[in-house]
Design a protein around this nucleic acid. Structure first.
Length: 874
RNA sequence: GCGGACGUGGCGAAACCGGUAGACGCACGGGACUUAAAAUCCUGGGCCGCAAGGCGUGCGGGUUCGACUCCCGCCGUCCGCACCA
């Protein structure tokens, strides 16, 4: 037995160099092989990779290496999502230019990623902050502008008056800027939008044609897009406010429950509704109420718990079905301006919000829907009823089902008119809004337009692209450096030559990641894509990343692909045919007696008397073991991949990431688990060397006859081979690892003892070792190369085809039938595969265990399920 | 509140289409090798029970010769969205 150990630190860089020298992972030109595009979500260059990256890229690499071995032409590129706020923060805090900071980080992370041994085509590397990349993004933007898919409008934004910048919703904490702590204002700014709503219907419908996406993600997108069918109803204003009044003669509301119209008790307006504003002009108390709503509205926490509040405007509207029925109009804090028409009619009996409101202000609550045989009043005794039923208290609707009543109301109101136009119209409403992409930031892709007083918004002409970011900027003052850089900002108008200025907003960084997968297919092209090449590779066959991008990134990318199709850059609608969302890497947390977090590296965990305990290594003080949580700096439960790679090597880290836990679930990182993976790596290496010494020579012919032990080993090898291939196709990597472990165990068994082996076993040993090496290769590629060389090969595993499992060895010539009596297993019998049911039954009836189990009852039936099981019914 | 997912040994988990529940691994026990340890190898184990046997996939029902798997009703955990009319 060999006592040496496999030296990962020496071997891994050596094999990486070997792959690199042969340029094995650079994607070949179209050579007629079927193509396969594997992509993992590209990282933000924070400066260090984390364990989540290792897991994500290990999964992608398994697929890439497997598909390559299966004969596909594989595209597996890597790049950097390199624009964004952290670079500007670093510039402010550390006085480093964002560009320098970003490219330094990229260099550091590239080295780290390369040490993992991923089969990436580095020749296609892109960073979204490369002028080459964002130049093409500017072309796309201008094409979208021309196609009407980009436009400018006024929009409310969160404005931080101290930092002079716009904040995203998630950057506003309790109504204050996350950085400055200043009270955030709502400001109207003119912003650029991309018209994602142009594709609402298609983005929704096409989700049903993405069978290889997780159901969860499709559902989340469906909810986000939020299609609803309803009726838009115009209510005539019959009495104006005491002083002043409404600018219009009517109020339009949107409802999905027109059937409840006879249960209407009031109309409610959003505080931002134009009619609310008009009424407020002569009604200081109302103005104050609206102001209060705005203040409360900035805090998400306040919104959740906010009490329903309203203010009677004094306006009265006429019920569409009854000229004598007048309803009050309130301004209510729970009505949203940007959904529907910003106004609703309220039916308290069948909507909980309306119910709360009506209860508070003493408004009527009339039930109009109830299941047959129930008391409508009792139904709403302690809350709104939103279930199904038949109409009551509703005149001509009485007795109808909800659906019938909806249809009847729509039909009648479409026919009625108010001021010569129909009172109501059927309407489909969407929750999805257009995508605001303006950011008042430096480190992003400049929006390539010029503002001219005479000509308006002028696109930057193609020969003046790209609009490059100026490099000489300072971050010592708040606000957008582009805005105060006159030499960059002031330019002549491309149309009239007069004085003009550049757009100083840059694009949301989600734009950058909305098309990078397409750019990878022709990363150096002078146009955004080369359509013929893009069409060969896209859609991405397998995309892998975290669920946290289920909505925004994935929805934006789906929109972008459609917009790029509309502008002639690609030929398909969907960017990702297959999507896999992997779970997080989590770790135990530790706290000392003072409640301070302690890092895993400072802790020693030991088991004593069956209970796990932990102490701090430095002072031996006990440390409390806390819950397992996502790795985060604040809780200090972070494992640095660098430490792992140095101690155990890349293969161990990769192997561990893919063992045990199913890929879609969280994986708990533990020291013991890594140690285990490391032992497996060493064991495979040892067994491969032993098999090389004891097994047949490379390329030896198969003997005609195999003894039972040799045959068993061959079956184990081919069985594992089949299971691993199947497992990879289905993303069951943990099952693949288990299958390769089983083969490792079988090989180890066969290698026991010092006796020389026969020709048949020698052949089986080599065959099993080679299969083991090849099926382990996608998971632990360096190890595989080392073993492959030990087995006498001069070629690389990375260029070796995936072996075919021999079907004859997947099936045994005998079958073990479990024998049940009344569904409980009592015995088992072994019969030849071709044994017929009658013979099996006879054998089972004769079993002593069967007789014992049935006692003196007669056998009623014997069920023989071919190749599966026998059940005796007594 | 709405929507979705999940619940199997001490732990992570596996189980094809309804057919031997617990593969594989972690941790643990016993043994071999060793002056000793590490490493390695062998070996044990769902639970209760001396055993025969019984009980076991969150709980309660149902369908079936047979249910982790299908159906109905609960309980629990996690995730997403959230005043969307």
């Amino acid at each position: 037995m060999t006592t040496e150990r496999y030296n990962t630190r020496e071997a891994e860089p050596r094999w990486q160099a070997a792959w690199n020298d042969k340029r094995l992972f650079e994607t070949a030109a179209d050579d007629g092989r079927p193509s396969y595009y594997v992509l993992e979500m590209f990282p933000y260059p924070s400066g260090r990779i984390h364990m989540g990256h290792v897991r994500n890229y290990a999964m992608g690499d398994v697929v890439a290496r497997y598909k390559r071995a299966k004969g596909f032409s594989v595209l597996h590129p890597m790049g950097w999502d390199a624009f964004g706020l952290p670079a500007e923060n670093a510039a402010m805090e550390k006085k480093v230019h964002p560009k320098v900071w970003t490219y330094d980080n990229i260099a550091a992370m590239r080295d780290q990623l390369k040490s993992i041994g991923l089969s990436l085509d580095w020749s296609r590397e892109i960073a979204t902050c490369d002028p080459d990349y964002y130049a093409q993004q500017q072309r796309l933007f201008l094409d979208f502008l021309k196609a009407g898919l980009a436009y400018r409008r006024k929009s409310k934004v969160n404005w931080d008056p101290v930092d002079n910048t716009v904040l995203a919703n998630e950057q506003v904490i309790d109504g204050r800027g996350w950085r400055s702590g200043a009270l955030v204002e709502q400001r109207e700014l003119t912003q650029w939008f991309l018209k994602i709503t142009a594709f609402s219907e298609d983005l929704l419908a096409a989700l049903d044609e993405l069978p290889r996406w997780p159901e969860k993600v499709r559902t989340m997108q469906k909810n986000w897009i939020g299609r609803s069918e309803g009726l838009s109803i115009r209510w005539e204003i019959v009495r104006d406010a005491a002083h002043g009044g409404s600018p219009t003669r009517e109020i339009e509301v949107y409802t999905t429950r027109p059937d409840t119209l006879f249960g209407a008790s009031f109309v409610a307006l959003s505080p931002d509704h134009p009619v609310s504003a008009a009424c407020a002009e002569c009604e200081p108390e109302l103005a104050a109420f609206i102001e209060e709503c705005h203040r409360a509205g900035t805090s998400a926490a306040a919104l959740e718990t906010a009490e329903k509040k309203g203010f009677d405007t004094g306006l009265r509207v006429r019920h569409p079905f009854d000229p004598d029925w007048e309803l009050p109009v309130y301004v209510a804090n729970f009505v949203l301006m940007d959904y529907g028409t910003g106004a609703i009619f309220a039916c308290p009996a069948h909507d909980q919000r309306d119910f709360d409101f009506a209860t508070k202000y003493g408004l009527p609550i009339v039930p109009v829907v109830a299941p047959e045989g129930t008391d409508p009043e009792a139904l709403i005794a302690d809350g709104a009823y939103d279930g199904d039923g038949r109409l009551v208290n509703s005149r001509f609707l009485d007795g109808m089902t909800v659906d019938e009543a909806k249809e009847e109301v729509a039909r009648r109101l479409e026919a009625e008119t108010l001021d010569a136009t129909p009172v109501a119209a059927r309407k489909v409403n969407w929750r999805l809004r257009d995508w605001g992409i303006s950011r008042q930031r430096y480190w992003g892709c400049p929006i390539p337009v010029i503002h001219c007083d005479a000509c308006g918004v002028v696109p930057v002409p193609d020969d003046q692209l790209p609009v490059l970011l100026p490099e000489d900027v300072s971050f010592d003052r708040p606000g957008n450096p582009l805005d105060r850089d006159d030499s960059w900002r002031n330019v002549p108008c491309p149309t009239c030559g007069g004085p003009a200025h550049r757009e100083t907003d840059t694009m949301d960084t989600f734009v950058d990641s909305s098309w990078y997968f397409a750019r990878f297919t022709a990363p150096r092209a002078g146009t955004p894509t080369e359509p013929a090449v893009a069409n060969r590779w896209l859609p991405v066959d397998q995309y892998i990343g975290g669920v946290e991008h289920a909505i925004l990134h994935l929805l934006y990318a789906r929109f972008f692909t459609r917009a790029m199709k509309a502008t002639g850059h690609v030929g398909m609608d969907e960017p990702f045919a297959g999507l896999f969302t992997q779970g997080m890497v989590v770790h135990e947390t530790y706290r000392d007696a003072d409640g301070q977090w302690v890092a895993p590296a400072e802790v020693r965990v030991a088991e004593a008397d069956g209970a796990r305990g932990a102490v701090r290594i430095s002072d031996g003080q006990p440390v409390e073991i806390g819950p397992i949580e996502k790795m985060s700096k604040s809780k200090k439960n972070v494992i640095d991949p660098n430490d792992i790679l140095e101690t155990y090597g890349a293969d161990t880290a990769r192997w561990f990431m893919l063992s045990d836990s199913p890929p879609e679930r969280d994986v708990v990182w533990s020291e013991a688990g890594v140690e285990g993976a490391s032992r497996r790596v060493q064991r495979v290496w040892r067994l491969a060397n032993e098999a090389a010494a004891k097994g047949a020579l490379k390329g030896a012919a198969a003997p005609a006859e195999f003894s039972e032990p040799a045959l068993a080993l061959r079956r184990a090898a081919h069985g594992a081979l089949a299971r691993v291939g199947e497992g990879i196709e289905k993303f069951h990597f943990n099952v693949c690892v288990a299958a390769s472990n089983e083969l490792t165990n079988a090989l180890s068994q066969a290698l026991q003892g010092d006796a020389a082996v026969g020709e048949d076993m020698a052949f089986a040993l080599r065959e099993a070792a080679e299969i083991l090496v090849l099926i382990v290769a996608p998971f632990a590629p360096h190890l595989a190369e080392e073993c492959w060389a030990a087995l006498g090969h001069e070629t690389l595993v990375a260029e070796t085809p995936w072996p075919e499992a021999d079907p004859a060895l997947l099936a045994s010539d005998v079958i073990v039938y479990p024998v049940q009596v009344n569904g409980k297993k009592r015995d088992e019998i072994t019969v030849p595969v071709d044994a017929d049911a009658a013979a099996i039954e006879a054998q089972v009836r004769a079993l002593e265990a069967v007789a014992r189990a049935i006692g003196d009852k007669p056998i009623r039936k014997v069920i023989v399920v071919p190749r599966r099981i026998v059940n005796v019914v007594a």
